[in-house]
Computed example of a mutant assay.
Amino acid sequence: MRIFHIATLADWTDAQASGAYTTSTRGVTLEEEGYLHASRADQWEGVRAAFYADVTEPLVLLEIETDLLDVPVVEEPPAPDVTETFPHVYGALDPAAVVEVTPL
């Protein structure tokens, strides 16, 4: 299954150098949140509009192949009052699981 994550180019570049991507979402680390926020193909554009519209630094869309992950992915709502589910990656993302990077 393919899922998507919006990242700053700087965070993605750092992950490639270190071997682990650990930014949960804009300004929040995996350690702080407990998982990495991700989206399905029909969700990422809405996430970009809602949370990244004012970002001026370069962004990239990471396309992640879940079969290449060695950490769990769980479909769940991002907050108690939200009914729509999103894929959450429970652990650091190995850059090798990213099969395509698209500049946004």
Rank of each mutant, 00 (worst) to 15 (best):
M1A: 11
M1F: 01
M1N: 03
R2S: 05
R2D: 02
R2G: 00
F4M: 04
H5S: 03
I6K: 04
A7C: 06
T8N: 04
T8G: 06
D11M: 06
D11K: 09
W12H: 09
W12C: 11
T13H: 03
D14Q: 13
D14Y: 02
A15S: 14
A15V: 13
Q16A: 08
S18M: 10
S18N: 14
S18H: 13
G19T: 03
G19H: 07
A20M: 11
T23I: 15
T23E: 14
T23D: 10
R26D: 11
G27M: 03
V28S: 02
T29E: 02
L30R: 00
L30V: 00
E33N: 09
E33I: 00
G34Y: 01
G34W: 03
L36R: 03
H37G: 07
H37Y: 14
S39H: 05
R40I: 01
A41V: 09
D42L: 08
D42I: 07
Q43G: 04
W44I: 02
W44V: 04
W44E: 03
E45M: 13
V47L: 06
V47P: 00
R48I: 04
R48V: 06
A49Q: 07
A49W: 04
F51N: 13
F51Y: 15
Y52S: 08
A53Y: 12
D54A: 14
D54W: 14
D54S: 15
D54T: 13
E57W: 11
P58T: 08
L59I: 11
L59W: 12
L59K: 13
L61V: 14
L62I: 09
E63W: 14
T66H: 04
D67Y: 09
L69A: 02
D70I: 07
D70Y: 02
D70V: 10
V73G: 01
V73I: 04
V73K: 02
V74A: 06
E75A: 07
E75N: 09
E75H: 08
E75I: 04
P77S: 11
P77K: 08
P78S: 15
P78T: 14
A79Q: 08
V82N: 00
T83F: 01
E84W: 00
E84K: 04
E84Q: 08
T85A: 01
T85I: 01
F86R: 11
F86Q: 05
P87T: 06
V89T: 01
V89Y: 01
Y90A: 05
Y90T: 07
L93T: 10
L93S: 08
D94R: 07
D94M: 07
D94W: 07
P95L: 14
A96C: 00
A96Y: 03
V99N: 15
E100Q: 15
E100R: 15
E100H: 15
V101W: 15
P103Q: 08
P103C: 08
L104K: 11
L104D: 10
L104Q: 09
